[in-house]
Structure formats: C-alpha cells, structure tokens
Amino acid sequence: MKNPQEILEIAKKTLQIEAEGIMRLSTQLNEDFSEIVHQILYLNARVIVTGIGKSAIIAQKIVATFNSTGTPAIFMHAADAIHGDLGMIQNNDLVICISKSGNTPEIKVLIPLLKQSDNKLVALVGDTNSYLANQADWILDTSVEIEACPNNLAPTTSTTAQLAMGDALAVCLLECREFTKEDFAKYHPGGSLGKRLYLKVGDLASQNEKPEVVSSSTVKDVIIEITKNRLGAVAVVDGGMLAGIITDGDIRRMLEKNNSIEGLLAKDIMSTTPKYIDKDELAVNALDILRKNNITQILVGSKTKFEGFIHLHDLLREGII
C-alpha cells in the first residue's frame, strides 16, 4: 500500500507526463491542421467523428464540443459503423477517425468503405506511418513518447493528446466563425452555464414583490413593508421618481441611534444613492454589482422608473453563483 506522499508523487508524475505530451503536440502541427479547419468551415455537410475503444469516448467529447460551438457533428462508433451505422454518413460529410495505432481491425475494415463513398478523411492518429494515416487526406499527429501508465499500456497520455487536439480544432473553428457568447448561449439554454449567458435581471425581478414607500412614510410603515415582502429592503419612490432605498441594515442602525422611532420618516433614514440595474442587463452582471458593493439586493430600473428588486437569493436559486 502506498503512503499519502507516494500517492501524491504518482499523481504529480502522471500530470507532468500528460502535460509534456500536450506541449509536444504544438511542435507536431503543420499545414494539414489549417487545411482541415478551412475544410470544416466551408463544409456544406456534417463532421462525423469516429473511433474504437478509448478513442471512441474521446470522439464523443469532441463531437459535443463541436456541436456546442457551432460545428454540426455526429459521433459514429467504428465497430457499429460496419454493422449498419455507416448509413448515417452522407456524401459530403467529412470524417475524422481517431486512433492511437491506426491499425485496429475495425479501422482497417471501415476505411475502404469511406474511401469508396469518396468522403474526405482526417486521421487523428498516434502513428503517422499507420494504415489509417496512409489512407487519410489529412493527418493530425497525436503521437506521444510515453503513456502515463507505468506499464506504458493504458491509454492516458495518448487520449489526453487526442482530446487536446480536438479542443484545438474546436477553438480555431469558433474563432474563425467569430462565435460570440450570445451564439454560445443559443446552444446552452439549460443549466447554470446557460443561465449566466441569457438570464436577464427582469426575468428574476418579475418573480419578486415590489416593496415601496414614499419619503413621508413613517418608519413603522417602512418596517411593515420590508417584513411583508421579505426582500430585506424597500424602495422610496416619490412621484414616480426613485428617491432612495431603505434596507433592514438601515433599520438596525436607526434603532441603535434612537430610543424611539416616533416622528421618524423614511426620508430620515433612506440612502439617497442606491445601486440599481436595468431590467435588460444579464443577471450575472447584477451578481458582479452585489459582490463589488458587498450588498444582498439591488433595485431594478432607473432613477425615473422603479421596476422591482433582485436579491442574492434569486441568483443562488438559479445557479448563477
């Protein structure tokens, strides 16, 4: 049994070997990489990514990254391809075949079928002298010097290199397309990531009450309004104009300074320089304001129009934080 320090050393060595493998990839890039990017950019079809074993798992991840960044892609398992799934490939599709050896039986059966249909073939391969590499139109060299596995057998550095090369393709493609965060949001409508990209302040504020008083309201009325709406604050609005804000913190500070609230009005304790945000701003921008000012709620609207509140708890509930 390894002791804790030995375990950490093994982990560090693994990461170092894999990191060195990725760094080596940059020296293996050539004109084929640029040509592949251009081919995909002007492709009037899909990218089919295939592989066998661990390479098939990497292929699935690359397909997911392509699809989420604007490059239509489909995963096809190399073993299933020769048992019927080959029918998913259309005439103009470009095929990326991933393999460490480039010589597996399934690959050797699949490649002639692809060449027969005249599909362009990219070999993302660990052996540039392999059968796959020799049959491909373009080669992405993902060869590595050593696997992180102590027996130099289990795919570790090699699959990491495949994954990194796929990411390099995806990033080049999205930058060439000038793919924006708004475009990204279209493909990620669900989950916290999507919400950070599209959820707006107004979407959250519309779910909350709109506690407000006038500057001449008594402190008692202010306390009742804050308590009733449970947002920890109330807007002070006079004649449709936002005059200020009173938070539960303002109430506590007022009680510390005064023995009686008799005669005190909202205008006596309100903050006249409240933070506010437009309803069309992204909710994640509201989070930035809350953090920078160390506050838990912010007014929605403008000086001339109070439209509600957004609270830190709203952002927590939606997974923005």
Rank of each mutant, 00 (worst) to 15 (best):
Thr128Ala: 11
Ile36His: 02
Glu9Asp: 15
Ser99Lys: 08
Asn103His: 08
Leu312Asn: 01
Ala148Trp: 01
Lys120Arg: 15
Val171Asn: 06
Lys279Trp: 06
Asp268Glu: 10
Ile36Met: 00
Asn91Tyr: 11
Lys267Glu: 13
Glu6Leu: 13
Leu287His: 05
Lys210Leu: 10
Ile295His: 06
Ile320Arg: 03
Arg317Ser: 15
His188Ser: 13
Glu307Tyr: 00
Asp183Gly: 08
Leu231Ser: 09
Lys2Ile: 13
Gly239Met: 11
Thr247Asn: 10
Ala266Glu: 09
Ile40Val: 14
Thr104Gln: 05
Ala148Asp: 00
Leu140Glu: 00
Pro150Gly: 09
Ile58Glu: 00
Ser101Leu: 10
Ala45Tyr: 00
Val236Trp: 04
Asn44Ser: 13
Ala123Leu: 01
Lys181Pro: 00
Glu209Pro: 06
Gly239Asn: 15
Asp80Gln: 14
Val144Leu: 04
Ser101Arg: 05
Val236Asp: 06
Lys257Asn: 13
Asn44Cys: 02
Gly51Gln: 06
Met241Pro: 00
Ser117Asp: 11
Gln16Trp: 01
Leu15His: 12
Asn3Gly: 03
Lys305Ala: 13
Asp80Asn: 13
Ser206Cys: 11
Glu225Val: 04
Ile139Leu: 02
Leu299Thr: 07
Ala164Gln: 10
Gly202His: 07
Pro211Gln: 10
His188Phe: 04
Ile289Leu: 15
Glu281Leu: 04
Gln207His: 14
Leu140Phe: 07
Asp268Pro: 04
Met270Gln: 12
Asp203Phe: 02
Asp141Arg: 03
Trp138Ser: 00
